[in-house]
Simulated assay, not measured.
Amino acid sequence: MRAVDPFDAGVEVPCIARELRVSEKSVYQWHRTWRTGGREALRSRGPCGYGCRLGPHLQTKLAMWLDEGLAAHGWADDQVWTAARVRTLIGRKFHLS
């Protein structure tokens, strides 16, 4: 959103990029979006990617199982939850991949 005021003032894209310490390509994309949709078009839509497939009730169950520790779920070699282990636990308990 810091780029919108300079857009309104007619500041050149390379100057905005230098000031914000971003690439000129990004500023050109923002400028194009701003021209077509205004300030609201540049507003963040939150993180990208897929939404969580586990509802609140299942997320609570998963948190409980994670709190039980790794040994309770068959990992005795070390006690560090990794993304791969959490993914495996979700697959075992919820039959989701």
Rank of each mutant, 00 (worst) to 15 (best):
M1L: 14
M1Q: 13
A3N: 01
A3H: 01
V4F: 06
V4S: 08
V4G: 06
V4L: 04
V4A: 14
D5A: 14
D5S: 11
D8E: 13
A9W: 06
A9M: 11
A9V: 04
G10N: 06
G10K: 04
G10S: 05
V11H: 10
E12K: 13
E12V: 04
V13W: 11
V13Q: 05
P14N: 11
C15Q: 15
C15G: 14
I16Q: 00
I16L: 06
A17F: 02
A17K: 03
E19R: 15
E19W: 15
L20I: 08
L20K: 05
L20D: 05
S23C: 10
S23N: 12
E24V: 11
E24W: 08
S26E: 09
V27D: 02
V27H: 04
V27Q: 04
Y28S: 08
Y28W: 14
Q29M: 15
H31T: 09
H31N: 12
H31P: 03
H31K: 15
H31R: 15
R32P: 06
T33E: 14
W34D: 01
R35M: 11
R35I: 05
G37Q: 12
G38Y: 05
G38I: 02
G38Q: 00
E40V: 07
E40A: 11
A41V: 02
A41F: 04
L42T: 00
R43Q: 13
R43H: 08
R43L: 11
R43F: 08
R43V: 12
S44A: 09
S44G: 03
S44C: 03
R45V: 04
G46T: 03
G46I: 03
G46N: 06
G46Q: 02
P47H: 13
P47D: 11
P47F: 09
C48G: 12
C48V: 12
G49H: 00
G51F: 06
G51L: 11
R53W: 09
R53P: 05
L54M: 00
L54V: 01
L54D: 01
L54W: 00
G55W: 00
G55A: 08
P56F: 00
H57F: 07
L58H: 10
L58G: 07
Q59I: 02
K61W: 05
L62H: 00
L62F: 03
L62Q: 00
A63V: 07
A63L: 13
M64Y: 15
L66A: 04
L66T: 03
D67S: 15
D67W: 04
D67M: 11
G69S: 09
G69P: 10
L70D: 04
L70I: 02
L70V: 03
L70S: 09
A71S: 10
A71I: 02
A72H: 04
H73A: 02
H73G: 00
A76E: 08
A76Q: 13
D77S: 12
T82R: 15
A84Y: 07
V86F: 06
V86L: 07
R87P: 02
R87Y: 05
R87N: 13
L89K: 06
G91K: 11
R92S: 07
K93L: 12
K93A: 13
H95A: 10
L96M: 14
S97P: 12
S97Q: 13
S97K: 14
